[in-house]
């Protein structure tokens, strides 16, 4: 009898063995409080050493929106898309959530080496926790966006709302949910790639920058690509663009949500977490090795 058989005959299991996929997910669900607590603590700690502390949650997006509004408002001049401020803020805030999830997801394993090395828990909780942390930041941005939408939709000349709050607004939380699902998958994939090839970390700033320019954050893709319908059709598969544009359709006066955008967003929200969790789980045994 060799050692493996001897161990098995006494009911011993291989240490650190990757559990089957569904029991892995079950374990993740049981430890969900850990992911949530880690993200709220990290979020607090991120601002703890600043003087303004928690106020940065709302200050940062305000400054961000102000800067973009000023710069792109001036550069684009008369080429500004319709209802520019509401258009821009929706784009900037949702994009910063998604790119934030990508960036912090990518560093979630590498950056929490202390936790990975000292405690055993399903590692996928780390990219998930980084998405939750971005979601906490998103709340402040959404509040700011709401204020902008209300102000820009108010017609000061005759004191009425141009675009009353309608059923579309009620559907916006659904889009946020789909976006969080998509970002979870994205964060898991980025986390594994970056932990096995740190090279990704070097490329992240460029990837985010390119994504920013091709996702119609501050300009209308439809207008720019009006002469090239094939290119537009390809760009419409960009998930960043899909979530931003669908949200505009629901929230911003003068834009309509199309069925195609809904389908694309639902597709991204279903496919990405499945691919992401399978891809991440495959390498569960090797995270935290100091090669």
């Amino acid at each position: 009898m060799n050692k493996a058989e001897y161990a098995a005959s006494h009911g011993l299991k291989r240490v650190g063995a990757r559990p089957p996929f569904f029991s892995y997910l079950g374990e993740v669900w049981r430890r969900r409080v850990f992911a949530w607590t880690l993200s709220t603590y990290t979020s607090e700690a991120a601002n703890a050493r600043t003087r303004l502390g928690r106020w940065w949650l709302i200050l940062l997006p305000t400054i961000q929106a102000g800067t973009y509004g000023l710069i792109f408002g001036l550069i684009l001049g008369s080429n500004r898309p319709h209802n520019f401020l509401a258009f821009l803020f929706t784009g900037v805030f949702l994009f910063s959530f998604m790119s934030g999830a990508f960036q912090s997801g990518a560093s979630s394993i590498v950056g929490n080496a202390g936790l990975v090395r000292s405690l055993s828990f399903p590692r996928i909780l780390l990219p998930l926790s980084s998405v939750i942390q971005q979601f906490i930041n998103l709340w402040a941005q959404l509040a700011l966006l709401l204020v902008t939408l209300l102000i820009t939709a108010f017609d000061f000349s005759n004191l009425t709302w141009q675009n009353p709050i309608d059923l579309d607004w009620a559907l916006f939380p659904v889009v946020v949910l789909l976006m969080v699902m998509f970002c979870s998958g994205l964060a898991m994939i980025a986390a594994r790639i970056n932990s096995q090839a740190r090279d990704l970390g070097k490329l992240i700033p460029f990837i985010t920058r390119i994504a920013f320019y091709v996702s119609g954050v501050f300009f209308s893709l439809e207008t720019v690509l009006a002469a090239w319908p094939t290119a537009l059709a390809i760009f419409e598969f960009n998930p960043f663009y899909d979530f931003i544009q669908l949200s505009r359709g629901l929230l911003v006066a003068g834009y309509e949500p199309s069925a195609k955008l809904w389908l694309l967003c639902i597709g991204w929200a279903v496919i990405m977490p499945i691919i992401g969790s399978l891809y991440f789980w495959k390498a569960e045994e090797v995270y935290g090795r100091d090669d």
Partner: peptide, 27 residues
């Protein structure tokens, strides 16, 4: 403790071993 996979061979245990090390900084 299952924190580093061995290059060859394996470790079997009746329960998940918990490691407590000096280098382990939490947060």
């Amino acid at each position: 403790a299952g924190l580093t996979q061995p290059t060859n061979g394996a470790v079997y245990a009746s329960a998940r071993p918990v490691l407590l090390g000096v280098g382990a900084v939490l947060m």
